[in-house]
Every structure is written in structure tokens, then in C-alpha cells.
């Protein structure tokens, strides 16, 4: 078996890793420009369907129910939305920080719940047609 050469990190590695970091930082900066200011509403979707839209300005607690069971609890306080409880075992969504800026999301994968900040309340055309 060929032994690895003595050098642990070569010039190629520095270029490769540096390049990846540069791309990441570039994308990050780009995102800051593209991303709008703070949003006004929180949109909750379950299974890809809109569950409800709530104003950020209003302090409230939203219980997200699925098949009559409360799966996630969303708290809106001081203009920020935060997942405060979930029935899944890993609680990753609860550990995520509160969100307030447009397009920021909190995702609960096991329950397929997505909480997203949006700028304005949109009329859901698909629902009105289907409903």
C-alpha cells in the first residue's frame, strides 16, 4: 500500500478550502443584500399547505394541530416568532432561535411544520379555488 506523502496540507488543499470559504462568505454577503428587512407576518405551513398566517405585531401563542393533536406550539412575542414546544423527540425546532426577518424559517421535520416570516399577508388562491 502506498504511504501518504509526508505533507499533511498541500498548496492544493489551501486553495480548495480557501475557495470554498470564499464562496460561502460571498453567498452570505449576497444573502444580506437580497434579504428584505423585517417581515410583518408569520406563515405556518403543515405538509406544504398553509395552516395559518399570524401578525408579528401581536403577542400570541399559536397551537399547531395535526389530526386533532397539538404537535407544535409557536409563540409570537416582541415581534419575534419562536417555537416553544414540539412533540417530536429531537426538539431541533425548539432549539432554533426566534425569527423575525423576512424569509427566515423554523422547520420541524418530523411533523413537516414550516414557520416562515413573510412581508405581507398573501391571499391563498389555491385554497380558495380548491375550497
Amino acid at each position: 500500500m502506498r504511504l501518504l506523502n509526508k505533507k499533511r496540507i498541500g498548496k492544493n488543499d489551501i486553495v480548495f478550502i480557501g475557495g470554498l470559504l470564499a464562496i460561502a462568505v460571498f453567498l452570505f454577503v449576497l444573502m444580506q443584500f437580497v434579504r428584505g428587512g423585517s417581515g410583518a407576518y408569520v406563515e405556518v405551513t403543515v405538509d406544504g399547505e398553509v395552516y395559518g398566517t399570524y401578525a408579528l405585531a401581536e403577542n400570541q401563542t399559536v397551537e399547531i394541530k395535526k389530526d386533532g393533536k397539538v404537535t407544535n406550539v409557536l409563540s409570537i412575542r416582541d415581534g419575534k416568532a419562536d417555537m416553544t414546544d414540539a412533540d417530536c423527540p429531537d426538539l431541533l425546532c425548539v432549539h432554533q432561535r426566534a425569527i423575525s426577518k423576512e424569509d427566515e424559517t423554523i422547520v420541524c421535520l418530523p411533523n413537516k411544520v414550516v414557520v416562515k416570516i413573510i412581508k405581507a399577508k398573501e391571499k391563498n388562491n389555491i385554497d380558495s379555488i380548491a375550497g
Binding site: V25, L27, E104, V107, K112
Partner: peptide, 20 residues
């Protein structure tokens, strides 16, 4: 894909930095 509505590219930079 599972949650259907999810902006991947929003997380791309953070994912890359964390991965590095």
C-alpha cells in the same frame, strides 16, 4: 423535499461554513 416549502439557498452559506 419532505416539507415541500423550504428555502434551501437561504441556509447554503451557513451550511458550507459549518461543513468546512
Amino acid at each position: 423535499v419532505v416539507v415541500e416549502t423550504y428555502n434551501i439557498f437561504y441556509y447554503m452559506p451557513v451550511l458550507m461554513i459549518a461543513g468546512v
